[in-house]
């Protein structure tokens, strides 16, 4: 039982973290909280990749010239390394969008933004289109 748990312990934690991130994204209305939820989700995917790349008894993939050494798989490391930097760049883009949304609607709460948006569309003048249809 414990053997089996040790074999898939990392994957179980990854799934718990992933679902926590998903929960934040769905249940919370604050946009900043949602972005942090996304980054938790993202980090859980990183952990999943790195866990797959681990070789038991291996070491970091920096060659030491010793032919008998066992190394972990470098490929997931490369993929995740670039993904982290791209992740922060896209997070920055999301934050920029949040700032502009805050400027336009005066709120970063999802429900308030939807309400403000609804008010805007109700208050929008419809005259030119109505004239056109007549």
């Amino acid at each position: 039982m414990i053997e089996q748990l040790g074999d898939s312990w990392n994957y179980i934690i990854v799934i718990i973290l992933m679902m926590t991130g998903l929960f934040i994204v769905i249940a919370r209305t604050n946009l900043i909280k949602k972005l942090i939820g996304l980054s938790i989700f993202q980090t859980s995917v990183f952990l999943f990749y790195i866990s797959l790349g681990k070789v038991a008894g291996g070491t970091a993939p920096i060659l030491n010239g010793n032919p008998g050494t066992l190394y972990s798989n470098p490929l997931p490391h490369v993929l995740i390394l670039t993904a982290i930097v791209v992740g922060v760049a896209t997070t920055a883009l999301g934050l920029a969008l949040i700032l502009r949304i805050n400027e336009a609607f005066g709120s970063i709460e999802e429900d308030e933004i939807i309400a403000a948006k609804l008010n805007q569309s109700l208050a929008r003048p419809r005259r030119p289109l109505d004239e056109a249809s007549e």
Binding site: I50, G53, G58, P61, I80
Partner: peptide, 8 residues
């Protein structure tokens, strides 16, 4: 680090 991914 514990999973050998030092660069990451």
């Amino acid at each position: 680090v514990n999973l050998d991914a030092v660069d990451v």
